[in-house]
């Protein structure tokens, strides 16, 4: 039995060492990638104290909708699109917080929509933050919403294993060889025409109460002396009680029913390339 237990313990020990080495290697590569494969990594690797005229945050309804290069060509303003697909308010707050820690801007725009009432994190949008979980601020934020954060931080390599499709070997290799597509457009990628989902009318009902993460964003911006604006990007044939957003958020603007043209939409929640161009134009005229 002794010899077996010794063998077992040695194997477990070697296995553990392997996990620690891999955790360290993966974390280093994700923190300092040759090519940032997602916007969190891109943001965290930007040179500090860069000055932007504005920054836009939100989910895919920012990522695919607003083109900072187009705005620049019209107004000369230098902005950045930090929309990340599937983000809830929690991930948006993290993004704003880290952005303002390292960069400078005068105006921040936050897209709010049917996700407004959500207080919890999104299991997909949180993934790019996990290589940075040893950063105390980020860890404390994640710990507040995710009861498994402690395992993700302290069990070596655990976070890379459970999210193997997003943080696994393939993604790691891609960070050496495959540049992202959003860097050259300051964070924007157009969405091409998708299915016929846009033909289905939707009815979204929001609860009339404040969201703690958005309130935190307002406080952060106040402390940093940054103007914060909220808006809702266009939907196709969708009713949403945006009066709730108007009551609870400062500087709110509703674009939800701006476009009725079907050929502007890829699906009911996302504009296509043509729609994004029109919306960026409208956005630019409205705010700048």
């Amino acid at each position: 039995m002794k010899s077996f237990l010794k063998y077992f313990i040695v194997t477990i020990f070697l296995f553990f060492i392997l996990l620690v080495i891999l955790d360290f290697t993966y974390s280093c590569i994700y923190r300092y990638p040759v090519h940032a494969r997602n916007k969190v990594s891109w943001l965290m690797n930007k040179p500090a104290n860069k000055v932007y005229d504005y920054a836009i945050f939100g989910s895919s309804r920012v990522f695919f909708h607003l083109n900072p290069e187009q705005i620049k060509s019209k107004t000369g303003l230098n902005g950045i699109n930090l929309g990340y697909p599937a983000s809830n308010n929690f991930e948006i707050k993290l993004m704003v917080q880290e952005f303002l820690k390292h960069q400078k801007t005068k105006k921040i725009f936050i897209q709010v929509d049917d996700q407004y009432n959500k207080e919890h994190f999104d299991p997909t949008a949180i993934i790019p933050w996990l290589p940075f979980i040893h950063n105390a601020t980020i860890y404390n934020e994640i710990k507040a919403v995710d009861s498994t954060a402690v395992y993700k931080k302290y069990l070596p390599f655990y976070r890379y294993m459970i999210y193997d499709s997003k943080l696994g070997f393939r993604e790691l290799m891609m960070s050496f060889i495959n540049p992202n597509k959003f860097e050259s457009t300051n964070g924007f990628i157009p969405m091409f025409n998708g299915n016929n989902e846009r033909k289905t009318a939707k009815n979204i009902v929001l609860e009339n109460k404040k969201n703690s993460h958005l309130e935190a964003i307002i406080d952060i911006c106040k402390n940093k002396n940054v103007d914060v604006f909220f808006f809702t990007a266009p939907y196709y044939d969708t009713n949403i009680n945006t009066n709730v957003l108007e009551q609870n958020l400062p500087n709110y603007k509703d674009f939800s029913n701006t476009f009725e043209r079907e050929d502007y939409f890829s699906n009911s929640s996302h504009l296509n390339e043509r729609g994004a161009e029109a919306f960026t134009n409208l956005f630019s005229l409205t705010y700048f």
């Binding site: 194997t11 070697l14 296995f15 392997l18 996990l19 891999l22 390599f157 294993m161 459970i162 999210y163 193997d164 499709s165 696994g168 070997f169």
Partner: peptide
């Protein structure tokens, strides 16, 4: 250990 490494690196845990 090599097989364990393959499991960790390429296993479909999600």
């Amino acid at each position: 250990i090599f097989i364990l490494l393959l499991i960790i690196l390429f296993g479909s845990f999600s």
